[in-house]
């Protein structure tokens, strides 16, 4: 696998995937684990979970971790740059155009539709990321941890929620799990 292939996959996931970090992470998983086999599911899980306990934007940490696992430091820096630069340029250009866009009456409706789709994509991304564990790990464990995450997040800071989930998973009785 060449750096150019890695760059192409990351560019596609980082620039063409809307719906936030979950949809983009799900897209990276599909491309690198399911379609190309560059990473095992366990490696992706490691990259994704460590990115969640890294301060800052989780998606960029996940891209760096995935790049590192595939091609070392060069891969990490390449993935980080490719995932962040084009989307940041698009963000800057849209900010510049926003005043003009908002003065155009149909823009509100267009944005409303786009945001609804973005929410759906985010939910779809969540399902793609979590479903291997919900399907193959015993259902009860999956539901308990997912619910704990959801419930705890309403009053605890994210890092403590994840720490509680990690402790729950660590202490849960051993059983077969995906990969």
């Amino acid at each position: 696998m060449y750096l150019a292939d890695l760059a192409r996959v990351m560019l596609r996931a980082g620039t063409l995937t809307f719906g936030g970090g979950n949809a983009t992470s799900a897209s990276i998983r599909r491309q690198m684990v399911d379609e190309r086999g560059w990473l095992s599911g366990a490696d992706f899980t490691l990259a994704f979970t460590l990115s969640r306990i890294t301060p800052g934007t989780n998606l960029f940490a996940c891209c760096s971790a995935v790049g590192y696992l595939v091609r070392g430091w060069t891969g990490a820096l390449l993935c980080l740059l490719i995932a962040s630069v084009p989307s940041s340029i698009v963000t800057t250009l849209l900010t510049l155009a926003m005043d003009r866009i908002l003065r155009w009456p149909p823009a509100t409706h267009l944005m409303h539709g786009a945001i609804a789709i973005s929410v759906g994509l985010s939910l779809g991304g969540l399902w793609v990321l979590a479903s291997p564990y919900l399907r193959q790990a015993p259902l009860l464990r999956g539901i308990v941890i997912l619910t704990a995450g959801f419930a705890l997040a309403t009053w605890l800071s994210p890092i403590w929620v994840l720490a509680a989930c990690a402790a729950l998973g660590y202490l849960w009785p051993s059983e077969a799990s995906p990969e």
């Binding site: 979950n22 366990a42 899980t45 490691l46 994704f48 979970t49 969640r52 306990i53 409303h112 945001i115 609804a116 973005s118 929410v119 985010s122 939910l123 969540l126 990321l129 979590a130 564990y133 919900l134 790990a137 464990r141 999956g142 941890i145 997912l146 619910t147 704990a148 995450g149 959801f150 419930a151 705890l152 997040a153 309403t154 994210p158 929620v161 994840l162 509680a164 989930c165 990690a166 402790a167 729950l168 998973g169 660590y170 849960w172 051993s174 799990s177 995906p178």
Partner: peptide
């Protein structure tokens, strides 16, 4: 085994956590 289960739990926990971020966006939309 232990750390592997912990990582899987964090994966599922982050899904739950992300749902809390999606809910207000959905309410807006």
């Amino acid at each position: 085994p232990g750390p592997k289960r912990a990582l899987e739990a964090v994966m599922l926990g982050s899904a739950g956590l992300s749902l809390t971020a999606v809910v207000p966006l959905a309410q807006d939309a």
